[in-house]
């Protein structure tokens, strides 16, 4: 990891005055990628269940972040939350499974947003699922989303595994529900979920 890979805040482009500390030199901490002002704009999410954990609320700052990352394709923004993601996922014993994109969608976007978040946070992951429809959830009501039929298929054996599903955003839970039920039906021991954002 290069120490000075980011010299300006990735979000507002103001200069980051990073001080070299013993902690930074001796531990494997991630160098800062965004400034304190930007950091304060994100609100942490208060988790109520241990089945689905989320880190942040979907406020205006987060909307802006997700737009720039996912739709403007600014991949380097995956590094913004790497420290927090690393903190939450590095100790888990479960197998980390990102929610996949449809292969056609992946070609169009040129990157898988969930995989990139994990890569930036140095979290190893495995793909068990494949998406079978290119239809998106955007613009559907909650009822419509929950009523859609299964849009994942299994690509790898998951018997007796403890699985932690990872997604960028949890809105109605339809995506996570589909993935979870498929994995449980296929013999997974337990399935929990973790998302960066709770909508």
């Amino acid at each position: 990891m290069k120490r000075n890979e980011v010299s300006n805040c990735l979000l507002c482009n103001s200069t980051l005055n990073q001080q070299i500390t013993w902690k930074a030199l001796l531990t494997n901490a991630f160098p800062k990628t965004f400034c304190i002002d930007c950091e304060q704009k994100f609100e942490p999410y208060e988790n109520t269940s241990d089945q689905i954990l989320s880190l942040y609320q979907y406020n205006d700052a987060m909307k802006d972040f997700l737009h720039r990352y996912k739709f403007m394709h600014d991949i380097i923004l995956a590094k913004v939350f790497r420290e927090q993601i690393h903190k939450h996922l590095s100790k888990t014993r479960a197998t980390i499974v990102p929610i996949p994109l449809h292969p056609a969608k992946l070609k169009e976007r040129t990157f898988a947003q969930v995989d990139e978040l994990l890569k930036a946070a140095h979290i190893p992951y495995e793909h068990f699922l494949e998406k079978t429809t290119t239809e998106t959830q955007v613009g559907k009501t909650r009822q419509e989303r929950l009523a859609t039929s299964q849009f994942f298929k299994l690509v790898k054996e998951c018997k007796n595994k403890e699985i932690l599903l990872i997604d960028d955003i949890y809105t109605t839970g339809a995506t996570i529900q589909h993935a979870k039920s498929l994995l449980l039906e296929s013999g997974a021991k337990s399935v929990k979920a973790f998302t960066l954002i709770r909508g």
Binding site: I76, L106, K107, F111, A112, E116
Partner: peptide
């Protein structure tokens, strides 16, 4: 050069 980012392109 700081404003260029290298990435693994899925396309």
């Amino acid at each position: 050069q700081q404003e260029f980012v290298r990435y693994d392109c899925a396309r």
